[in-house]
Amino acid sequence: MKRTPKLAAAALGAALLVPTLATTAQASAGDCEESHFCFFYNSNQQGSHNAMQSNASDLSGYTFTSRGNGQGVSVKNHAASAVSNVCMTVRVYYNSNYSGPMDMFNYREASNLDNTYNNNASVRFAGDC
């Protein structure tokens, strides 16, 4: 089959109209500001995050707020990693009201959650630097 110039031009025009996938900016550990403890939706401090500065006995009222995977999802039982830019020890607990297994973060520590991976219900800030 022989292509005519009109047919070739039409095919090229159609190819140019094909939408491209836009990439969504993801949060990273560097997005967690000083004096904040940040939960991340994905492992390795990726996806949407929530920045906290005080204790929370129940994380059900908190959501991931930044752009990225998980934005708008409840932090409770959905966080996979965290970073601490808080000059004190921060403990993430499996249960509400600061009980059960926990993960502990020191100042400037970033890590995947281990004991509370996608099963995190409360967070407590303790001590001083």
Score class of each variant (00 low, 15 high):
Lys2Met: 12
Lys2Ile: 14
Arg3Lys: 13
Thr4Pro: 04
Thr4Glu: 09
Pro5Lys: 15
Lys6Ser: 14
Leu7Pro: 00
Leu7Cys: 03
Ala8Phe: 01
Ala8Ile: 12
Ala9Arg: 03
Ala9Leu: 11
Ala10Asn: 03
Ala11Cys: 08
Leu12Val: 12
Leu17Phe: 04
Leu17Asn: 07
Pro19Met: 10
Thr20Phe: 06
Thr20Tyr: 03
Ala22Val: 13
Thr23Gln: 13
Thr23Cys: 04
Thr23Leu: 03
Ala27Tyr: 02
Ser28Tyr: 01
Gly30Met: 10
Gly30Phe: 02
Gly30Glu: 01
Asp31Ser: 07
Cys32Tyr: 05
Cys32Lys: 00
Glu33Ala: 15
Glu33Asn: 13
Glu33Ser: 15
Ser35Leu: 10
His36Gly: 00
Phe37Leu: 03
Cys38Met: 03
Phe39Trp: 07
Phe39Lys: 05
Phe39His: 04
Phe40Ala: 01
Tyr41Gln: 06
Tyr41Glu: 04
Asn42Gly: 00
Asn42Leu: 04
Ser43Lys: 12
Asn44Met: 04
Gln45Asp: 01
Gln45His: 02
Gln46Pro: 00
Ser48Glu: 10
Ser48Trp: 02
His49Trp: 07
His49Arg: 11
His49Phe: 09
His49Tyr: 13
Ala51Glu: 12
Ala51Cys: 08
Gln53His: 12
Ser54Tyr: 08
Ala56Cys: 11
Ala56Phe: 08
Ser57Trp: 10
Ser57Gln: 11
Ser57Met: 09
Leu59Met: 09
Gly61Met: 02
Gly61Tyr: 05
Tyr62Asp: 15
Thr63Ile: 14
Thr63Pro: 01
Phe64Lys: 02
Thr65Gln: 07
Thr65Leu: 04
Ser66Gly: 10
Arg67Phe: 05
Arg67His: 05
Arg67Gly: 10
Gly68Lys: 02
Asn69Asp: 11
Asn69Cys: 01
Gly70Asp: 03
Gly70Lys: 02
Val75Ala: 03
Asn77Leu: 07
His78Asp: 14
Ala79Tyr: 07
Ala79Leu: 08
Ser81Asn: 11
Ser81Asp: 06
Ala82Thr: 03
Ser84Asn: 13
Asn85Glu: 14
Val86Trp: 08
Cys87Val: 08
Met88Cys: 15
Met88Leu: 08
Val90Thr: 07
Arg91Tyr: 06
Arg91Val: 14
Arg91Met: 10
Arg91Trp: 02
Tyr93Phe: 15
Tyr93Ala: 10
Tyr93Trp: 14
Tyr93Gly: 05
Tyr94Glu: 07
Asn95Ile: 06
Asn95Gln: 13
Ser96Tyr: 01
Ser96Trp: 00
Ser96Glu: 13
Ser96Pro: 00
Asn97Cys: 02
Tyr98Val: 12
Tyr98Glu: 11
Gly100Ile: 06
Pro101Asn: 15
Pro101Ser: 15
Met102Gly: 00
Asp103Tyr: 07
Phe105Cys: 02
Asn106Trp: 14
Asn106Cys: 12
Asn106Gln: 14
Asn106Asp: 11
Arg108Gly: 08
Arg108Asn: 15
Glu109Lys: 09
Glu109Asn: 10
Ser111Met: 12
Ser111Gly: 05
Ser111Lys: 15
Leu113Tyr: 12
Leu113Asn: 10
Asp114Lys: 12
Asn115Ser: 07
Asn115Pro: 00
Thr116Pro: 06
Asn118Lys: 14
Asn118Arg: 14
Asn120Ile: 01
Asn120Glu: 12
Ala121Gln: 12
Ser122His: 11
Val123Ser: 03
Val123Lys: 04
Arg124Ser: 11
Arg124Gln: 14
Ala126Met: 14
Gly127Trp: 02
Gly127Gln: 04
Gly127Tyr: 02
Asp128His: 12
Cys129Trp: 09
Cys129Gly: 14
